[in-house]
C-alpha cells in the first residue's frame, strides 16, 4: 500500500468527525467527532513515520510516540468534556449545544 491510501482514509475520517461535530445537535456527538478527528491525526502520524523511515530506528518510532501522547491527551479531554456535559445537563436539562446561553444575558 502507498502512503496516499492511508492519507485518504485519514482525510475521510477527519471529514466525518468534523461533519459530526457541526451537524448533530448533541454535545455527545461533538465529543465523538473530536475523537474521530484525533484518530485521523494519529493515523497520519503513524503512516508518515512508517513511510518516511522504513528502515526502522528512532525516527520510525517518533510518529508512534507522538500518537501515544495524542491518545493520552484525548483521554484527558474526554474525561473533562464528559464532566462538563453532565454538569451542563444538570444545569440546563438538555444536551443541545446551543441551549446554554447564560453569558448572553
Amino acid at each position: 500500500m502507498s502512503l496516499g491510501a492511508y492519507l485518504a482514509v485519514a482525510t475521510a475520517l477527519f471529514v466525518l468527525g468534523l461533519a459530526m461535530m457541526i451537524a448533530r445537535r448533541n454535545l455527545l456527538y461533538v465529543l465523538m467527532g473530536i475523537e474521530l478527528i484525533l484518530n485521523a491525526a494519529n493515523l497520519n502520524f503513524v503512516a508518515f513515520a512508517r513511510y518516511a523511515a522504513p528502515a526502522g530506528g528512532e525516527a520510525a518510532l517518533r510518529g508512534q510516540v507522538f500518537a501515544l501522547i495524542v491518545i493520552l491527551l484525548a483521554v484527558a479531554e474526554a474525561a473533562v468534556a464528559l464532566a462538563i456535559v453532565l454538569h451542563a445537563y444538570s444545569l440546563f436539562d438538555t444536551v443541545r449545544p446551543e441551549e446554554p446561553d447564560l453569558l448572553r444575558e
Binding site: L28, Q64, V75, V95
Partner: peptide
C-alpha cells in the same frame, strides 16, 4: 505499530467508548 494498535483497543474501545456510553445513559437524548 503493534503497541499502538493494542493501546488503541484498550483506551478507545475499552475506555473512551465506555465513557461516552455512560454519558448517554446519564443524559436524555433528543
Amino acid at each position: 505499530a503493534d503497541f499502538l494498535a493494542v493501546v488503541q483497543l484498550l483506551i478507545y474501545v475499552g475506555g473512551i467508548l465506555v465513557l461516552i456510553l455512560f454519558g448517554l445513559m446519564l443524559t436524555k437524548p433528543d
